[in-house]
């Protein structure tokens, strides 16, 4: 459990740092690195970075958008089309970020396994 929490926190911290410096795939790098150095088991390999980044992206997006009455979010939720449902857009944002991070985490884990022999 401690490892999961540690991986979760490190992924979050790295993602926050990388998001200032790197394009969107910074979250993949963050998950990859935590997967590499803090190995997890079974489903957690994917789920921990998935949840970390989904949470990060959703709360980040929410904090920007809520300060502006969700004007753009509502429009993008029409564009996609989600009938203007901002919650759905937030959810999709979380899933997209989480998916990328989860897979990167799995890859990081496999690298660790390979290196360990």
């Amino acid at each position: 459990m401690r490892k999961k929490l540690l991986n979760f926190i490190i992924t979050l911290v790295l993602a926050a740092v990388f998001s200032e410096l790197l394009p969107w795939w910074g979250v993949m790098l963050a998950a990859f690195l935590s997967g590499l150095f803090i190995p997890l088991k079974r489903m957690a390999v994917f789920m921990v970075p998935f949840l970390a980044i989904a949470l990060f992206w959703i709360s980040y997006a929410y904090s920007i958008s809520s300060a502006n009455d969700f004007i753009m979010a509502k429009k993008i939720a029409v564009l996609f089309p989600l009938e203007g449902n901002v919650n759905l857009l937030l959810l999709i944002t979380g899933i997209v970020g989480g998916l990328a991070a989860g897979i990167a985490g799995v890859f990081g884990n496999q690298c660790a396994v390979l290196v360990k022999k």
């Binding site: 980040y60 920007i64 958008s65 004007i71 944002t93 997209v96």
Partner: peptide
């Protein structure tokens, strides 16, 4: 997630709150 498919924008880039459309809100 980094590539545009037809009229669907590259979703990773597009929805990333640090660089994508959320920044335009």
């Amino acid at each position: 997630l980094n590539t545009k498919f037809g009229s669907i924008p590259p979703l990773g880039k597009f929805l990333d709150p640090a660089h994508g459309i959320w920044q335009n809100d």
